[in-house]
Design a protein around this nucleic acid. Structure first.
Lengths: 117, 117
DNA sequence: TAAACTAACTAACGAAAAGTAACTATGTTA
DNA sequence: TAACATAGTTACTTTTCGTTAGTTAGTTTA
């Protein structure tokens, strides 16, 4: 692999966001702490990859994983750390950009607005 | 593939940015129109993928491709369209986020600042 | 005039990552 | 005890990536 003249921090950041699903997972977690199955249900990602991505994100420090042994079948909750939360403006920025610029096939109704949560 | 409850526009946007190199290519193009070989030199991406990504980005409307037949050996310049330029705040946002939060191995000096161009 | 060079790609191929489905461990409800 | 749910993991196939080599077209060099 070649060397680039870019800032290595930026490059690393883009490398993370430039992995499939990472952005969507973080975005979904902006809604608040969520369990594995909730994320799996909300996103079009398979359990295998979701598990993998969450592990990566935890390792990188964007996501916190907490296991609750008290309740019924063990419950695992994922939430954003400070570092993850700091991504909010970026994610919202992508959302606005998409709202403004992306045109979908005319067949889909495809309209949504979550900017007011 | 499952169905998600996310806004399809946002999902599509993330799908684009969530492809390897896309973000870096756009970021590099913020510097101004550039030729194929310049991009290839500036980024750690191979010619094959650069070509593929540029084609995608052109198709999606973020990048404009212009061929100059006047000068020496044919010259091809890539530049951002309005849609591509509109990504600037997002890309700069990722940059700031990375500057603030990403920690690299202590061996790399890894410090840079392009926020003032 | 032909060999070598440059820019901008494209093709082929092995390697890595993603998608899908089935399976596991643990506990719960019928 | 059988069927169900959560939170994964394993095994297998398909897709995407990365590398190297080759192509097209015009340019300089000898």
């Amino acid at each position: 692999m070649k060397q680039s003249s870019l800032c290595p921090k930026f490059e690393k950041g883009m490398q993370m966001l430039g992995k499939r699903w990472t952005g969507l997972i973080l975005y979904q977690l902006l809604e608040g702490p969520q369990r594995f199955c909730a994320l799996e249900g909300a996103l079009p990602v398979s359990g295998r990859l979701l598990s993998e991505r969450l592990k990566d994100l935890e390792k990188e420090g964007l996501v916190h994983r907490e296991v609750f042994t008290d309740s019924a079948p063990v419950r695992v909750e994922y939430s954003l750390t400070q570092m993850g939360l700091a991504m909010e403006p970026v994610l919202k920025g992508i959302e606005s950009w998409a709202q403004e610029w992306i045109v979908l096939d005319p067949k889909d109704p495809a309209d949504c607005d979550r900017s007011n949560d």
